[in-house]
Amino acid sequence: MDDMTSIDAPAVRAMGVAVTEIGDQIAEAAAVIPGWEYQGQRAVDGSTLCADQMSLTAMYWQVTLDGLGGLVRDYGGELRTAAGDFVATDQSAADRIQVAGKPG
């Protein structure tokens, strides 16, 4: 039974990059929302469009998606930072072990 725990820093870094890319995609989706308020015109025969309400709804949806994109991008950055911290901590421990093993 292997009691060792290890962290695959390159995998964590890759996850961070992937998460950041998803955050970028969410932000890109938010960027195209302006103008949606007119997409419902004549959707159904006899329908009317309340441009003010559609505009307000589109704006809220854009703000919400843009905020979500930022949160996801930040999480991706935190994963990449954690991966760097794992590598630095491992290197520091290895350096201390090497120094401890040398006669003084």
Rank of each mutant, 00 (worst) to 15 (best):
M1E: 04
D3G: 14
D3Y: 11
T5C: 07
T5S: 14
T5I: 15
P10F: 10
P10C: 13
P10M: 13
A11N: 08
A11F: 14
A11H: 05
V12F: 09
V12T: 10
R13M: 13
V17M: 07
A18L: 11
V19F: 03
T20F: 14
T20V: 01
T20H: 12
E21H: 06
G23E: 03
A27H: 04
A27I: 05
A30S: 09
A31Y: 04
A31C: 00
A31N: 07
V32A: 04
G35F: 06
W36H: 02
E37S: 06
Y38I: 11
Y38N: 02
Q39S: 14
Q39R: 12
G40T: 12
Q41P: 00
Q41A: 15
R42G: 11
R42A: 15
A43H: 05
V44W: 08
D45T: 03
D45Q: 08
G46E: 09
S47T: 03
S47C: 13
L49S: 06
C50L: 11
D52S: 02
T57K: 00
T57I: 11
T57R: 02
A58T: 07
A58H: 02
A58E: 07
M59R: 05
M59A: 11
Y60S: 11
W61C: 01
L65W: 08
G67E: 10
G67Y: 01
G69N: 08
G69S: 09
G70M: 05
V72F: 08
R73A: 12
Y75A: 15
Y75D: 01
G76I: 08
G77E: 14
G77C: 14
E78F: 05
E78I: 00
L79H: 03
T81Y: 02
T81F: 09
A82C: 06
G84E: 05
G84R: 02
D85E: 13
F86G: 00
Q91E: 15
Q91N: 15
A93F: 12
A93V: 15
A93C: 14
D95V: 13
R96F: 08
I97M: 08
Q98V: 15
Q98A: 15
A100G: 09
A100E: 08
K102V: 15
P103L: 15
G104K: 07
G104A: 14
